[in-house]
Design a binder for these strands. Structure first.
Lengths: 124, 124
DNA sequence: CGGCATCCCATCAGATACTG
DNA sequence: CAGTATCTGATGGGATGCCG
């Protein structure tokens, strides 16, 4: 991560890099927002809720979110085992900002897609 | 993009997927935030400002941002040529939400990194 | 100066099979 | 049920060289 701890505008730059490094992957944000809306949920429930995530990526992403303290993992040692995932306080504190972005997407994504079409025609 | 145009929570899910699809890459958000703070800027200025982006990725990312109407590209047909990039109204409308995320990162990233260390010790 | 084209590789992530 | 392990293909992105 370059450009961190340098001049003024760079420290914003740096925060953004941290966000991208941590949440720029394919599933983290989606899992956080899903857990934010359904509350506590089990592994296979999450798997179905998201729909097109592989078991592997769900496991990997849940582990890293747990490691960072964004979600909690509770294992109930029953047979068959039951595991429940839930946002932590830290994870919940991120939710509103994600929703702001989602709201922006709802409002502007059609325009963006239209712009993209126009641009494609213009250069062809 | 699955799970779009289905049940209720899915449409938020869907917006988030759109955001991730569009801005989940390595440089888009960073370029938008850079242009947001320095205003109008030339290709090589951007290149230096960001520091560790390759010429190729800067070109590619600027093109896609231009295609989507998030930035404008102005070519001054001088010798040598001069090109200036600038956020559009649409691009600027995204800025505050990015800054909210950056702010969140500033406030919580240390905790996250600490959590990650603790977790690494715990499992070893 | 501000690109584009090509090559190449490392990482990500999907599919599949197996397990406590 | 909730994972782990392995293999493999796709693809994002860097390095380099050339061009108007």
């Amino acid at each position: 991560m370059k450009n961190c701890s340098e001049k003024k505008p760079e420290h914003l730059n740096c925060s953004i890099r941290q966000i991208l490094d941590r949440f720029g992957d394919k599933w983290s944000i989606l899992i956080i927002s899903t857990l934010g809306h359904v509350g506590k949920q089990r592994f296979n429930e999450l798997n179905q809720q998201i729909g097109d995530i592989s078991q592997k990526m769900l496991t990997v992403t849940l582990r890293s979110l747990e490691a960072d303290g964004l979600i909690s993992r509770t294992l109930y040692p029953e047979i068959p085992p039951r595991v429940e995932y839930e946002l932590t306080e830290l994870g919940r504190s991120l939710l509103p900002h994600i929703e702001q972005l989602a709201l922006w997407a709802e409002q502007h994504m059609k325009t963006i897609l239209k712009n993209r079409e126009l641009y494609a025609q213009k250069i062809s």
